[in-house]
């Protein structure tokens, strides 16, 4: 008992005051890219050529955040003349198109599905399904339940039964072998329900794009309401997206 109390005192209070107060991530973290629209096209082409995810659309000078793994290789081309990454972790979008990004994203709070805020704004129960994920998206979603983030203080919880859930949070490129189980889980959730695609895998196949063993796009199977990019999305990216979309 004494040990418990001693440890409790040593550990203290660790929960972040985000979103009331802003939170700063270390400068090496790569969040929303800053894109130079006036960049010389040859530099843009060079960036597109080295991009392992083929996420750069050179002709439009845009980056598809649904494909990007934020590896940062393009930042090294010509000293970041075309793109540098900011520490802004707020990158969730309500549409797939918005992820094709010129450096700015539409404000997530203004999305068109206002009824979700009314339905789920005070209490949101999500069923998580890992469909071929590498376990980093899953791990950084789990982290939201640790004392630092303490997700349940916002009335958001991950639940075991799809019958108790208001929506589904999907990670992974949807391996063929998980497709049926994913669809069954989706169908078991009572309507109205919300679908969240988390991580570049569920949005575009991520690192596995082109593999014949994956579906590679969640929206090809079920309608997606919220997209959270990243490889994996930072826990704060997920938290930001959930709060902006539902609160």
């Amino acid at each position: 008992m004494l040990k418990i109390i001693k440890n409790r005192i040593e550990q203290g209070h660790k929960t972040t005051s985000y979103p009331k107060e802003p939170i700063e991530l270390y400068k090496r973290y790569r969040g929303l890219p800053k894109i130079n629209q006036d960049c010389d096209i040859s530099v843009v082409n060079q960036c597109a050529a080295i991009c392992p995810q083929d996420a750069i659309v050179a002709s439009e000078r845009k980056i598809d955040l649904g494909k990007c793994t934020f590896c940062g290789r393009c930042e090294n081309v010509a000293g970041g003349a075309f793109v540098t990454f900011s520490q802004d972790f707020g990158m969730g979008t309500a549409t797939r198109e918005a992820l094709l990004c010129d450096g700015s994203l539409p404000a997530l709070a203004d999305h068109a599905k206002d009824h979700f805020k009314k339905l789920f704004g005070r209490s949101l129960q999500l069923r998580q399904v890992s469909a071929g994920g590498c376990n980093s998206c899953e791990a950084d979603t789990n982290v939201l339940n640790t004392p630092f983030f303490d997700l349940s203080r916002f009335g958001i919880d991950f639940v075991a039964s799809p019958r108790h859930a208001d929506g589904i949070h999907v990670t992974g490129p949807i391996s063929k072998n998980m497709k049926s189980a994913l669809i069954s889980t989706y169908e078991a959730i009572p309507s109205p329900k919300v679908v969240i695609a988390s991580g570049c895998c569920s949005i575009s196949g991520g690192p596995f794009y082109g593999s014949s063993e994956i579906v590679g796009d969640l929206s090809a199977i079920v309608p997606v309401d919220l997209y959270i990019p990243g490889c994996p999305p930072h826990p704060l990216t997920t938290l930001h997206a959930l709060l902006k979309f539902f609160k």
């Binding site: 071929g132 992974g172 391996s175 189980a181």
Partner: peptide, 8 residues
């Protein structure tokens, strides 16, 4: 269930 065809 997680098979993604990595080796190929």
């Amino acid at each position: 269930y997680q098979h993604r065809g990595v080796e190929n």
